[in-house]
Design a protein around this nucleic acid. Sequence first.
DNA 1: CCTGTGTGTCTGTTATACCGGACAACTTGT
DNA 2: ACAAGTTGTCCGGTATAACAGACACACAGG
Lengths: 252, 252
Amino acid sequence: MTTQTVRARGIDRAVEILEYLRATRQPIGIGDLARRLKAPRSSLYEIVDSLVQAGILEIADEQGRIFFGSSVYFYADAYLASQPLVRSGRDEVIRLAEITGETAQLCILLGNKYTVAYMQPGSRLFRISSETGVLVPIPWTASGRVLLGDMTEEQVRAFLPPEDFVLPNGRKIEFGEFLDDLRLAHDRGYAVTTSLADEFTCCLAAPIPDQITGRPLATLCFVVPVHTPDERRAELVQLLIDSSRTISTRLS
Amino acid sequence: MTTQTVRARGIDRAVEILEYLRATRQPIGIGDLARRLKAPRSSLYEIVDSLVQAGILEIADEQGRIFFGSSVYFYADAYLASQPLVRSGRDEVIRLAEITGETAQLCILLGNKYTVAYMQPGSRLFRISSETGVLVPIPWTASGRVLLGDMTEEQVRAFLPPEDFVLPNGRKIEFGEFLDDLRLAHDRGYAVTTSLADEFTCCLAAPIPDQITGRPLATLCFVVPVHTPDERRAELVQLLIDSSRTISTRLS
DNA sequence: CCTGTGTGTCTGTTATACCGGACAACTTGT
DNA sequence: ACAAGTTGTCCGGTATAACAGACACACAGG
């Protein structure tokens, strides 16, 4: 009499919980959670309790909903301290936002997605900014074009899921068109996209290359209004390139 | 024949690993880890693998040593964003920075450390700013004096590790001196420090009290040059007090 | 050369972590 | 009032996760 129930490991459940919270970014009750994850309630109560004890989760409100706890902050602090790239990248982003007044970002690859690792909003009246840590399809971004700049056609094909070529407005990016963008970005050492992920923004991105392999590890980028004049764009691109060079040398 | 081996749960092992890394703040090999945690190697290989898959840990170097992975960074980001205090505090910080032109911050306690949860740089030629999310010893800051304002001597002693009383320049803050600062901050409803964590800054901090308990949850603060005149300081302190009252009522 | 100490992988065994299901105590809506 | 849905806790059975131990391999040192 095999009940064919997959008896999951506690760790896997725990990871599922954390990933769920990361994706939704809001507290959830344990009952709800059990339904979403298709996990037995009784198990979740135990696991959540362990994680709450450790401060990895916290009871977020009176209804007993749970969310991340302060421990993850300490973990992140240790992680950042261990990552020279992010550490110096942050400083440079803050500096760039200050001297230009534009929104500056440090972007990295996470699996086959793109994400903003750190962002400093500009000082314009109407700010354009994106949330950090949200996973975005690579073809939607200028930074993505820079980050894949050194891949072959086959590598890109294998790396990106087809659905990622569909923009938020429904338009589909042709693969050939995207590949041309990659080549251009690779040759010029930066990428520019206008009205791609949305109508009113222009993104400028430059790679931070690994000192040894030369492969892009991350990007620095500005997010500016589409109507920004070409001269200003060129000026900003130059700043990105200078900054990324600074970081790159500082890393070795 | 009871072998009296405590067969630990995977989750507990995982938590132990994370806590160990948090404490030591540096990568460690799995063999070493097994020895330190008195855990079987074979189990650790499995658990570490799960956590690496989830991005919670990463292989940090060629020797296969492990450390925190990028996922914890995103968990922490979600955590900060989830704090209602941070959300409404953010708006007020932006407003304060705009109307005064000074660098304004929202500061909170995380465990027994202090951190800047959100910061808006001022519009001076030379800006003074600190990074958000970096954990700082409480005695180094004006906000710290406000945040502990309602603790008894014994509570403070138990709460703060002795090494946190040593400033970046090596000077040691006497416990009695620190306690006097706390009392003063508590009585006046704000704290001012000059040339404490560094030579050229003056910090002004006011508490955001819990509506019910009255205990300080966080602080609003300005970071200004040391030579800022007294009248200006008084003016800024008043703004902080008004703003924190606004936030405090908005939270209930 | 051999010896000792480190990896990372793969067993078979068994103690138990996970599970399903039952329970009381609360809401909520009609 | 009742029914239908919660939520947090408890408990006993069993599938299996955690364990101990063995294995091949790669070093380093004498």
